[in-house]
Amino acid sequence: MVEWRQLKPLEWCKYVNKKVKVTAQEKHQYDGWVFTVDPVSASIVLVTVQEKGGTATVRVVTGHAVLEVEVLQEGSEETACWLRDVFTPPGGRILSP
């Protein structure tokens, strides 16, 4: 695989909404649904839920630590919808307090 950080935005996009296993430096492995990949740092934002409607856990693997990304499961329309709403701020919260 071409180095993760060297990929282009359209290539990172192919991972969005899919379930992946990320292998990172120091033998760490994380899996989850890809919400996005930061095009500046190549960091991957993974979301997982224990059960439907439960609390979502967000894990961000820093781009410099990513060694390999393997697709475990394709995304569905349902996944895409659910992921899209994960970070929708309640009540239109804005950046500055």
């Binding site: 990172a24 430096q25 894990r59 820093t62």
Partner: peptide
């Protein structure tokens, strides 16, 4: 220095 950061929504 960081490999992973995580939080619950």
């Amino acid at each position: 220095d960081v490999i992973l950061y995580s939080f619950d929504l």
